[in-house]
Design a protein around this nucleic acid. Structure first.
Lengths: 157, 157
DNA sequence: CAAAACTCTACTTTGTAGATAGAGAATACT
DNA sequence: AGTATTCTCTATCTACAAAGTAGAGTTTTG
């Protein structure tokens, strides 16, 4: 299907970083930009819109920066992606959260593509609803540990 | 995620129509265009490229038109969508069939977004690999019958 | 007040989706 | 042979969005 936009990829990366630092005070745009390899000015825009969405908060001036508003375990990827990219479904008429008759549908009740795309949407939603910033960070951490001690992997799996 | 393009939606609609007519000789562009409500000239292009992909064949002149090359039960939506839109995965680095390191990935082995998107891809692929033009047409036909005799629905389900 | 941060708005660039147009080539029928 | 029918090819157009850049403005802290 169509790819995730860079904006969303950057957003997620920034959110992971903020999630890792959750509870340890604000993080600087400049730091995030460097660590996560995101163009500085673009990141400014992105963080600003994440703030508008209520996902992060910010403080100005020395000692300022960005913070995650809610605990990482409470933020699902589904919600983040929906806020940034819109509905998960590959067609508006297959969306649960933001259903809209697609201009193409001749008859919505007997549209084959819609039936299939509803299945696809449900499958995606199931995964993305149960995946949170917290759970992603955990998996990443596990993968990093494995990288550090590659031998251990053999015996643990 | 991002929506299916109109090109793909039109392609699928045209293919369903050809699937319904499979075994009954060629169908005209003009007929398909009218029946499926697809802009004529755009449809010409689309059918031409579907021909290039080996999905349909054509005959010129009187009595000509387009035909499905293979039986509808043998054409999966996964294959059609891959040919038209590219990989199913929301990120190139999460694709099985056309893996490509995405320019954004810092470390592919510990990329959280990639891990999640691999799950999403697998779920989508599972559905789309088992769905064929034939199976879609069957479901559509069933839905049409239900529409015609709405009472029956109650007792059969 | 000055330095450190974030904030806001506007602009540029590039690419792609979604068409439309029209001449050309093959086929079948008479 | 001629003509109607049908697909074929290539070029062009327009609108919009993604991705990124620029720079002046505002708030906070010390």
């Amino acid at each position: 299907m169509r790819q995730l936009s860079k904006r969303t990829q950057y957003s997620l990366r920034a959110l992971y970083a903020l999630a890792r630092g959750y509870g340890h005070g604000p993080m600087l745009i400049s730091q995030l930009s460097k660590d996560e390899v995101i163009p500085r000015k673009f990141l400014e825009q992105i963080l600003l819109s994440l703030k508008g969405l209520g996902l992060v908060s910010s403080r100005k001036g020395r000692g300022g920066g960005y913070l995650l508003v809610h605990p990482p375990e409470q933020i699902t990827l589904a919600s983040v992606i929906r806020m940034i990219e819109g509905p998960l479904a590959p067609l508006p008429c297959a969306s649960e959260t933001r259903f809209r008759k697609c201009d193409e549908c001749i008859d919505i009740e007997t549209c084959g593509t819609r039936m299939v795309m509803k299945e696809v949407r449900d499958a995606m939603a199931q995964i993305l609803e149960r995946t949170t910033l917290g759970s992603v960070c955990q998996k990443v951490e596990a993968a990093r540990q494995r990288q550090r001690s590659p031998k251990a992997l053999t015996y643990h799996i």
